[in-house]
Computed example of a mutant assay.
Amino acid sequence: MKHSELTKTLVASLAVCLGVMGLGQLGQSETVFAKKTDNGKVEKFDKYKGHQVYEYTVQNKSGLKVSVLSQGGTLHGIYVPKGAKDKRNIIMSFKHTKQYYSKAAKSLYVGQQIGPVGNRIRDGKFKLDGKTVSVPTNENGNTLHSGKHGYNSVRWKGKVGTYHGNPAITLRHTFSSKYTGFPGKVKATTRYVVTDDNQVKVLMSAKSTKDTVFDPTIHAYFNLGQEKTIRDQELTMNSTQRLELNKEKVPTGNLLENKGTYDFTQPKALGSHLDHLITTKEQGFDTMFKVKPDKNDQIAKLSDPKTDRSVTFLSKRNGMVVYSGNSITKKVPFESGAGRQHAAIALEPQMLPDAVNHPSFGDVSLKAGQTKTKEITYKIDY
């Protein structure tokens, strides 16, 4: 990195630390800096609600590039190299920050960090240490994606550098219980790491002052090809069951067998699955699958036969929420073009949703003083 570029990076990162986080969420003792790296940079992206938004970018030796925005810790791009100046973004993004939060797109949570817990919590209540905890609700009396003051709602401070020798973006934010409505003052760290074997690792860590819950995810929408929908792309999952849901999409606690339309054990065009759901209320998938990681932690694979691109999803957790972009319309102006139904598919590794109310779904607790890390890995092939 040239001296002038490093200076700009340091200034930009210092600005994030000193002024753009808002809401009194930053600890004064925390610092932020950009390590010198030939593969990373920090640039001004635009402004949102009067505050500067920064774009953090890193890439590996083969040119696989990852871009993240400070607002919402949003995964803005995974760019697959086709040539020196020709890269294809395989996830959906917007040209301007405000578009991520627009009326047409805010319910889609495009690319955003979801935390401290993903998906729905029934009635916004759960038991913790024998006591009933109530958290803010934002959908039909339930809590969706941790409510209005979750991970996606804040400006994260960031830096570019390395992590275990790999190019990495590191984001940090301190959440107060008064702000989120969840127990504890939580110091959260999210790292986006790019390895030379084309893995994008997302490491989401948290440490709390009180016993609380923690099961975050990334709400990225994938379209691996050049087509305007994902109908010709193929999805496989290590899954034989899915959760039964009530009319509010909250798990009942029961499991259903994956048969026919819901069977992803063999590769088959997504369109052939979607055709059977187009007459339903959802008109596609908004489904919570129980997955079983294999010996390499693989839980799913999305591939595009036309471009020979694929993303393999690695996770140690037992859930994968699949949303096939059923409500995307032309009013959603993606950077790649106007949206349409099934323009992309969101695949969200996490513990089975509403685990706080169903102990058999898995442990999402975080004890006071303990640090936990949840990892999602996207293995990119092209």
Rank of each mutant, 00 (worst) to 15 (best):
V202Q: 05
K268M: 05
D211N: 15
P81G: 06
N142D: 15
T236L: 04
Y192R: 02
S360P: 02
V250P: 02
T195N: 06
P293N: 02
Y79P: 03
F334A: 07
N198I: 02
L18I: 13
I78V: 09
S102K: 00
D286L: 10
K103A: 10
V186P: 00
T371A: 07
N60T: 13
L14E: 13
Q28M: 11
A105D: 14
K268Y: 03
A344W: 00
T7M: 12
S208R: 06
I90V: 15
K65H: 04
N60W: 07
G184T: 07
S62M: 13
F222M: 08
K316A: 11
Q52A: 15
K148W: 08
T287M: 08
H358F: 11
G319S: 11
Q199W: 05
S67C: 03
Y382G: 06
P349M: 07
L274M: 10
D232E: 11
P183S: 04
K295M: 13
E248W: 12
I114Y: 00
Y151V: 05
V117G: 03
Y109A: 10
V42I: 15
V332S: 01
D354Y: 00
E257C: 07
Q113N: 14
K2S: 15
S153C: 01
T280V: 06
K61R: 15
L243W: 03
G115N: 12
T287V: 07
K2H: 12
V66H: 01
L14F: 11
V291L: 06
V194P: 02
T190S: 08
G325D: 06
N152L: 10
R231E: 15
Q99W: 00
H273P: 08
K98F: 05
K35C: 04
S327C: 08
A220L: 07
L256I: 09
G83W: 12
G284Y: 03
S208T: 14
G73I: 04
N89M: 05
V110W: 00
F222Y: 14
K259R: 09
V66Y: 03
K290N: 09
S176C: 07
D297R: 11
G284V: 03
F94R: 00
S146V: 06
L245K: 10
D286W: 06
L10V: 05
A220R: 05
G319L: 05
Q25Y: 08
P349G: 03
Y48M: 04
S208C: 02
Q266F: 04
T240L: 11
D363E: 12
Q266E: 09
A15D: 13
Q99Y: 00
I91W: 02
V66M: 12
V135L: 00
V135F: 03
Y101V: 04
Q113L: 14
N89T: 01
S93E: 06
Y192C: 11
T174E: 13
G181S: 02
G141R: 02
N119G: 10
T190V: 15
G124V: 01
K95F: 02
K331Y: 01
S70T: 12
V194L: 12
R122W: 09
A12R: 13
S327F: 04
R309E: 01
G130E: 09
N246M: 01
K372H: 11
P116M: 04
H342S: 07
D46C: 06
S153K: 13
V20M: 05
N357I: 08
V321E: 13
S327Q: 09
K331S: 11
R172K: 10
Q99F: 00
N60C: 07
I121T: 14
V160N: 02
F222N: 03
F222V: 04
